[in-house]
């Protein structure tokens, strides 16, 4: 069994230099979208951004959920949660229903709206690189060690250690440990996470369990419904027949 990889982003260390933003653009061969990277947003050509909230910098990118919503909702299985952790996308399978975008709890997937043959775009954790044992482009580029890459269990240990060693500089929470079942991109912050635009109203259980609860009722509906309808058909048919016969016999009596 391969060990799951993860990214740890530490907002207390981020200096807002934008190296990760540029490295991501370069690694994925994406065109420039904004001259000021701090003003850029996630888009079809931007898989990660650096955002400034007062004096704290934070990053936005696909969180690579442990049980990803996008993987569960896609009708044709165009998304895959790979063994290594990244969530990848197969543009050849995709129909373009955009349920993934509607469902994603982190508002991550972006669409090529202006193309006639549009694709869903998002960070895939440099899957081709990490498959070969390399780091992600953003982790590689980070000069401040604010973004680091490694095995998920080790990354979690590092995060816990940082919280314990410098309790005053951190808001005591590891984002991504259990948000909607956990993520493969974890984050630390000096301030509560909602102040940095993270989704903080997520349940602990993975979101796909919500639809699973409805979907698992299907066999019951099919079987129960079939029996019920067949029985109703038989009963009402019989009732009508008896009523008809009674009518007939009354008629002959007269």
């Amino acid at each position: 069994m391969l060990k799951q990889k993860a990214i740890l982003f530490d907002a207390t260390l981020c200096v807002g230099c934008g190296e990760c933003y540029l490295a991501c653009k370069q690694a994925n061969d994406l065109p420039e979208t904004n001259t000021d990277f701090l003003k850029d947003h996630l888009g079809a050509n931007t898989y990660t951004v650096v955002e400034q909230y007062e004096d704290v910098y934070t990053r936005k990118l696909c969180m690579h959920c442990v049980d990803p919503t996008c993987v569960s909702v896609c009708p044709v299985g165009a998304f895959t949660k790979t063994e290594l952790g990244p969530v990848t996308y197969d543009e050849d399978k995709c129909l373009g229903c955009r349920y993934c975008m509607q469902a994603c709890p982190h508002h991550i997937p972006r669409y090529e709206w202006s193309k006639v043959n549009p694709r869903v775009r998002k960070c895939i954790m440099c899957y081709d690189k990490i498959k070969n044992g390399e780091q992600t482009a953003c982790a590689e580029a980070c000069p401040a060690e604010a973004t680091i890459f490694g095995n998920r269990d080790e990354i979690i240990e590092i995060a816990k250690q940082r919280l314990a060693e410098n309790p005053d500089s951190y808001y005591q929470h590891i984002y991504g440990l259990e948000e909607a079942g956990g993520t493969n991109v974890l984050a630390l912050s000096p301030v509560p996470f909602d102040k940095l635009g993270f989704a903080t109203n997520l349940p602990k259980e993975p979101l796909p369990t919500y639809t699973a609860k409805a979907l698992e009722k299907i066999p019951g509906v099919v079987a129960g419904g079939g029996v019920f309808l067949a029985a109703m058909y038989w009963l009402t048919k019989r009732k009508n027949k008896i009523a008809e016969e009674e009518k007939q016999s009354n008629f002959t009596k007269e």
Binding site: V76, Y99, T211
Partner: peptide, 15 residues
């Protein structure tokens, strides 16, 4: 690609 739903299955998806 609308016909893909016939060949690529994802039974976890409501869609």
């Amino acid at each position: 690609n609308i016909w893909h739903a016939i060949i690529y299955w994802n039974p976890r998806s409501v869609m």
